[in-house]
C-alpha cells in the first residue's frame, strides 16, 4: 500500500515533468515550423512598410539598449549600496521595495510612463518606450547585483582595505571583479527579459512601419508589431508575425543560453 502510493506519486510527478516538456516542445516546434517557413532573408533588409522586419528588430534593440544604458548603472549602483554601504532597516526596506517592483505588472509600468512621459510630450516616443523598459530592468539588475555581491567573501573586502585601498576602489577593483561572472550572467538575463516585453511598450513607444532614429516619435517595436500583425486577418500579416515571433524567441533564448554558458564556463 505504502509502496503503491509511493509509485503512483512518483509516476504523477514524472508525468508532470513530461507535460512541462511537452509544452516547451509544442511551442518551440510551432515557432520553428511557422517561423522558418515564413522566414526569409529579405525580412532583415526591408522595413515593415515593405513587408520586412528590419526596422522593428533594430528599434527593439535600440530601446532595450537605451534601457540598459540607464538600468544597468543605476541598478548596479543601487545593488552596491545595498551590499556595501547601506545598513539595517533602510537596506531591508529598499530591498523589499525592489523585489516588489520587480513583480509589478508590466502594463502598469506602461501606464505610469504614459502619464509621466507620453502625456507631457504629447505623443508616444522611443524615449518613453526606453524609459518604461529601464524601469522594468532596474529592480532585476539590483536583485542580481545584490545577490552576486553577497557571495563575495568578507575577507576579500578586508584584504583590500588592509592594503590601504579606498572603499570605492575595493568595490570597483576587487569585489565587482570577484562577482563578475555572476553579474554578467544576471545582466544578460535581465536584457533577455526586457527585450521580449510587449505590454510596457504598447502605449509608450507604440510601433512604427518605418526605420527611425528619431526617439521623439512613435518608435518601431518588434513585439508591439507582432501583436498588431497577429490580430490582422490577412495571412501574410500572420506569417510575418510568426517570423517575427521566431526571431524574437530565438534572440531571447540565445541570450539566455549565453548567460548560462558563461556561468558554466567560468563560474
Amino acid at each position: 500500500m505504502r509502496l503503491l502510493l509511493n509509485k503512483i506519486v512518483l509516476l504523477l510527478s514524472t508525468l508532470s515533468a513530461l507535460i512541462g516538456l511537452a509544452f516547451l516542445a509544442w511551442i518551440l516546434f510551432t515557432l520553428i515550423g511557422k517561423g522558418l517557413s515564413s522566414l526569409h532573408f529579405s525580412l532583415f533588409l526591408n522595413d515593415l512598410i515593405d513587408g520586412g522586419l528590419r526596422n522593428l528588430i533594430v528599434g527593439q534593440f535600440i530601446m532595450a539598449g537605451i534601457a540598459s544604458l540607464i538600468g544597468i548603472p543605476v541598478g548596479m549602483m543601487a545593488g552596491i549600496y545595498l551590499q556595501e554601504y547601506g545598513r539595517g532597516r533602510y537596506v531591508r526596506f529598499i530591498r523589499d521595495l525592489s523585489d516588489i517592483m520587480m513583480s509589478a505588472p508590466s502594463i502598469v509600468i506602461g501606464a505610469f510612463v504614459y502619464a509621466i512621459v507620453v502625456v507631457p510630450m504629447h505623443g508616444t516616443s522611443g524615449i518613453a518606450g526606453s524609459i518604461a523598459l529601464s524601469i522594468m530592468m532596474i529592480p532585476i539588475v539590483i536583485n542580481t547585483t545584490d545577490n552576486m555581491l553577497s557571495l563575495v567573501p568578507r575577507e576579500l573586502r578586508e584584504a583590500g582595505i588592509a592594503l590601504g585601498a579606498s572603499k570605492s576602489r575595493v568595490i570597483v577593483d576587487i569585489i565587482i571583479k570577484a562577482a563578475k561572472v555572476g553579474i554578467m550572467t544576471g545582466l544578460l538575463l535581465s536584457f533577455a527579459r526586457i527585450i521580449g516585453e510587449t505590454a510596457p511598450l504598447l502605449f509608450t513607444s507604440e510601433t512604427s512601419n518605418y526605420f527611425s532614429v528619431n526617439l521623439t516619435e512613435a518608435y518601431p517595436s518588434l513585439t508591439v508589431s507582432i501583436y498588431a500583425l497577429a490580430n490582422d486577418p490577412t495571412s501574410s500579416s500572420r506569417d510575418l508575425a510568426w517570423a517575427a515571433s521566431f526571431i524574437l524567441t530565438m534572440m531571447v533564448l540565445m541570450i539566455n543560453l549565453l548567460g548560462r554558458y558563461i556561468t558554466r564556463k567560468k563560474g
Binding site: I27, I226, L248, L253
Partner: peptide, 12 residues
C-alpha cells in the same frame, strides 16, 4: 527556458 519565452509568444 520555457519560463524565459516572452509572454506574447504564449499568447500567439
Amino acid at each position: 527556458l520555457l519560463a524565459a519565452i516572452p509572454s506574447i509568444i504564449f499568447g500567439m
